[in-house]
């Protein structure tokens, strides 16, 4: 599969936080052929281990979350419309009129209804609807809706993956399936490289609701080194230039308190050496990614963060550049391949 095909295949699989089963199965299947061992831990993280060729070398954990934002049914109304809550929270700006899939007894197509302008007061037409004014219409009368839908059923956006000009693609769940695609790309590249370190590619669960998969996954794996791969603010109208990163200008390599400076230095060195374009980010405190959880696992893990610029995050049309995904995968593969068995000594603080 090409990067585009793999990303599309992942995007179309539902995987709201806590309900990652379908997307996890796809990842598990894809990685089985690329890594020697693939397992799922107790919270559902998919963990692929590609052993290095020098036993006793450090363990490198690469993590990207496979869960996506979504909604959850909270009530079936007497007229068959569904009330819902956000997982983790609703962006009211992007919901009205959008298509969704309600994952009930079977998948049901639906649309998010909102009050039409003609029944609103003039000043209310200028406001966003409130969550309590929204509902989902699955076209079923209440009796049928109750047969097929229960409180607690997850809901995903219904969105095709669309190819824009300039090598960009738009779709749902690219946050952080783009990161999972990076890990996939990395595993594919590693097949042609010698590497001393054991590489753990981990598709984590429940990142969007509190980095929970990374907390337990890192504890279980006990890596010596960890790199989170996530998406980051792409250049979007309304987002200040200094807070955003340009699509197709390469992955973002972060530095700051969440990042071990030597890991950062060496990621940059590999990128420069291979002529992989990259962008730098300075993050003063937490990065809001799995890297936050990984860094403080057990007695502390040297951690880094590589990100794919992404426009329109947390909407049904998240947009990334395919080249950035490929570049990040290549960067990580070569970073792994160049780690020596004694690399941990270089990480010791003087």
């Amino acid at each position: 599969m090409t990067v585009r095909e793999f990303l599309e295949w992942l995007s179309l699989a539902p995987g709201v936080s806590g309900f990652e089963g379908p997307v996890a199965a796809r990842i598990e299947g894809a990685w089985a052929g690329l890594a020697g061992e693939v397992r799922r831990d107790r919270l559902g993280n998919v963990i692929a281990l590609k052993r290095g060729d020098r036993p006793g070398s450090p363990k490198l954990m690469l993590a990207a979350h496979m869960d996506e934002i979504g909604l959850m049914v909270t009530r079936v109304e007497p007229d068959g419309f569904l009330r819902f809550a956000g997982v983790p929270e609703v962006d009211l700006r992007t919901l009205p009129g959008k298509e969704v899939v309600v994952h009930g007894r079977r998948d049901l197509r639906g649309v998010v209804g909102h009050p039409p302008p003609h029944i609103l007061s003039p000043e209310d037409t200028k406001k966003l609807p409130k969550l309590e004014d929204l509902f989902i219409d699955v076209g079923l009368a209440a009796v049928r809706a109750r047969e097929l839908v229960a409180v607690g059923d997850p809901i995903t956006f219904r969105a095709e993956v669309r190819e824009l000009k300039g090598g960009l693609v738009a779709g749902k769940g690219f946050d952080d399936r783009a990161g999972v695609a990076v890990l996939h790309q990395c595993l594919e590249e590693l097949a042609g490289l010698h590497h001393a370190v054991d590489v753990y590619a981990v598709a984590t669960v429940q990142e969007e609701v509190g980095l929970r998969g990374a907390v337990v996954g890192t504890y279980g794996i006990q890596p010596d080194l960890a790199i989170a791969v996530d998406v980051h603010l792409g250049d979007t109208p309304g987002v200040p230039e200094h807070k955003s990163f340009t699509l197709d200008k390469g992955p973002v390599i972060t530095m700051g308190a969440n990042i071990h400076p030597v890991l950062h230095r060496d990621l940059v060195a590999v990128a420069r050496d291979l002529n992989i374009p990259f962008q730098l980010e300075a993050a003063p405190a937490g990065t809001g990614t799995d890297a936050v959880a990984m860094q403080v696992s057990r007695s502390g893990i040297p951690t880094a963060l590589v990100s794919i610029p992404c426009r329109y995050m947390h909407s049904p049309v998240e947009t990334v550049a395919l080249a950035d995904v490929a570049r990040a995968g290549r960067l990580l593969a070569h970073f792994a391949a160049r780690r020596t068995p004694g690399y941990l000594e270089e990480l010791a603080w003087s």
Binding site: D41, R42, L43, R212, G213, V215, V216, Y219
Partner: peptide
Amino acid sequence: IAVTREGVP
């Protein structure tokens, strides 16, 4: 409880 150690169902 869920995020203890390696994770608890």
